[in-house]
Deep mutational scan, measured.
Amino acid sequence: RERTTFTRAQLDVLEALFAKTRYPDIFMREEVALKINLPESRVQVWFKNRRAKCRQ
């Protein structure tokens, strides 16, 4: 699998959701994945990595 490159628009949507909740449930992830045209698994990993970035 190639490394996913997120567009600015995708990142804006993800960051906005992250500001609301750091742990979105499966339904929220599915919804945002459809909206920004990414698989739900990529959204899940993005959140995992974003939380890790926050902890540093």
Results as ranks from 00 to 15, higher is better:
R1G: 10
R1S: 08
E2R: 05
E2F: 05
E2D: 09
E2K: 08
E2S: 07
R3S: 15
R3T: 15
T4G: 11
T4E: 13
T5K: 06
T5M: 08
T5R: 08
F6A: 06
F6T: 06
T7R: 03
T7N: 14
R8Y: 13
R8F: 02
A9R: 11
A9M: 09
L11A: 12
L11R: 10
L11W: 05
L11T: 09
D12T: 10
V13M: 11
L14S: 01
L14A: 02
E15F: 02
E15T: 02
A16P: 05
A16G: 08
F18A: 02
A19G: 07
K20P: 01
K20S: 08
R22N: 11
Y23E: 14
P24E: 00
P24H: 01
P24N: 03
D25W: 00
D25Y: 01
F27Y: 14
F27N: 11
M28Y: 03
M28P: 08
R29I: 13
E30R: 13
E30P: 00
E31D: 07
E31N: 09
V32I: 09
V32A: 14
A33K: 00
A33D: 15
A33R: 02
A33T: 03
A33N: 01
A33W: 00
L34N: 15
L34V: 12
L34K: 15
L34G: 13
K35Y: 01
K35C: 03
K35V: 05
I36M: 13
N37R: 09
N37Y: 00
N37A: 11
L38K: 08
L38I: 03
P39Q: 07
P39H: 08
P39A: 07
P39W: 02
E40A: 09
E40L: 07
E40K: 06
S41C: 06
S41Y: 11
V45W: 14
V45Y: 12
V45M: 13
V45C: 12
V45I: 12
V45S: 11
F47A: 01
F47H: 01
K48V: 10
K48T: 13
N49V: 08
N49W: 05
N49E: 15
R50M: 13
R50W: 04
R50F: 05
R50E: 15
R51D: 04
A52E: 12
A52C: 07
A52T: 08
A52W: 05
K53C: 15
K53T: 12
C54G: 10
C54T: 13
C54P: 08
R55G: 14
R55W: 10
R55F: 11
Q56A: 14
